[in-house]
């Protein structure tokens, strides 16, 4: 269909990952906010996880594009 779904998936999760990582960093130490999540800075960890996933997807999309062009 001419559209590689890996690209939007990678892009979206990279954006989400970046947002939550930054939000997690700015709110770190906020005990009220993180009392629900048992004191775990879940935004930071979840954000980093999504960032890694997003970047890997983008890398695959980029590789597929290179291969197609070659």
């Amino acid at each position: 269909m001419g559209v590689d779904i890996k690209f939007p998936i990678g892009l979206m999760f990279s954006i989400f990952g970046l947002m939550l990582t930054l939000y997690g960093l700015f709110t770190s130490g906020d005990e009220v906010l993180y009392s629900r999540s048992l004191g775990v800075n879940i935004n930071l960890w979840c954000g980093l996880g999504m960032l890694v996933f997003g970047v890997i997807m983008l890398a695959f999309a980029w590789k597929a594009k290179k291969k197609k062009e070659a």
């Binding site: 997690g24 709110t27 999540s37 879940i42 954000g47």
Partner: peptide, 11 residues
């Protein structure tokens, strides 16, 4: 509602 703070809650 029990576990997620703002941020992951949106997710």
């Amino acid at each position: 509602k029990q576990y997620l703070p703002a941020g992951v809650l949106g997710l």
